[in-house]
């Protein structure tokens, strides 16, 4: 693997390999010495054109636990706010000898541009681009589900037969898109449920089903309920009347949560809007995987960085 730009182009074999390596990385996180010397001497740049403390520190922890040097570059207060182009920024990083670039950008496709432009030789990891993809989030979601389903026997397996319900703002969610490609590739069945205004116009080419009624969808007893964040910063249109109505119709409130069997996993990519898309009781219950998702994020990102940066550059496709 030279770059990790999305989950759409990942095969089942590649995804399972990455999740298996993440299992090894997770085992390292349980040791007293949580560090591996694997990427000693490599430099990873976190290039963040959008605020995201959680994803950035997760990547930072992952790179540091593999002994890479980490440079954090955030667009705010940098040369970018003075008008520097992506090309010039990239060439600066190239000149500094970056081996890997983790990029988050508000424009869909920016990581692809960076990876294919020839501006840099570094391996590119997409840490979220516009409303396109956020592959490491989907991989950590899959890893979390696989561990809850199969426990210690997870290695080598997919998510065959698991039924996953993704609820909420699919339209603006790169997490939903990455999951919509990855989870079916691993054998899961994915259903998206959202108000019609928050579903993309055309999802016919996605390997998923869609519906518009949360209570009906929950009645079909999915194994996993993944609540998406209402992204207030992207709500520039009249997508729903107000947040109270959204919570009543589309939120995982106490009544809906109590009606679920206690084997149903409740997932959320964070940060949560408690009381809006998810009630506190659901978020803090043993069924909630929210904290595991954060811990697993480091393991999965270590696996991605290992696959991208350890081999001879350009040797494998």
């Amino acid at each position: 693997m030279n770059h990790l730009l999305g989950t759409r182009e990942l095969s089942r074999e590649q995804a399972v390999e990455l999740l298996d390596i993440a299992e090894d990385m997770a085992a390292v996180q349980e040791r007293e010495v949580k560090k591996l010397p694997t990427l000693r001497g490599k430099t990873v740049v976190n290039l963040f054109f959008e605020d995201s403390t959680r994803t950035r520190i997760s990547f930072e922890a992952a790179a540091k636990r593999l002994s890479a040097d980490v440079i954090n570059f955030s667009a705010k207060g940098s040369s970018v706010s003075k008008g520097e182009s992506l090309k010039d920024t990239a060439q600066t990083l190239q000149a500094m000898g970056a081996d890997g670039v983790v990029i988050r950008h508000p424009a869909s496709g920016a990581p692809l541009t960076l990876a294919t432009s020839g501006w840099i030789d570094a391996g590119v990891v997409n840490a979220g681009d516009g409303t396109h993809e956020h592959p490491t989030q989907a991989l950590l979601d899959a890893f979390t589900m696989r561990r809850r389903l199969h426990g210690a026997a997870s290695r080598g397996r997919g998510l065959d037969g698991a039924r996953v319900l993704i609820v909420g703002d699919v339209l603006h969610s790169r997490v939903a898109r990455s999951n919509a490609w990855l989870l079916p590739a691993l054998g899961a069945e994915v259903e998206l449920v959202a108000p019609p205004t928050l579903l993309p116009v055309d999802t016919r080419r996605w390997p998923v089903t869609t519906s518009y009624d949360l209570d009906e969808a929950l009645g079909r007893r999915p194994d996993v309920v993944m609540m998406l964040r209402i992204q207030a910063e992207r709500m520039h249109g009249a997508f729903f009347p107000n947040s109270r109505e959204y919570a009543r119709t589309w939120g995982l409130d106490d009544a809906r949560f109590d009606a679920l069997p206690d084997t149903t996993m409740v997932m959320h990519p964070g940060p949560m809007n408690r009381g809006l898309e998810i009630a506190a009781r659901a978020a803090d219950s043993p069924q909630s995987t929210v904290r595991e998702q954060v811990a697993n994020g480091v393991s999965v990102r270590m696996a991605a960085l290992y696959l991208l940066l350890s081999g001879e550059r350009g040797a494998a496709a």
């Binding site: 298996d20 390596i21 350890s310 081999g311 001879e312």
Partner: peptide, 21 residues
């Protein structure tokens, strides 16, 4: 005990798949 992550030739060969420790 898997030694993949500790090898000194990681950047000289194609990416190796680690095994469980």
């Amino acid at each position: 005990i898997d030694v993949t992550m500790y090898r000194d030739d990681l950047s000289r060969t194609r990416t190796r798949t680690p095994q469980p420790t």
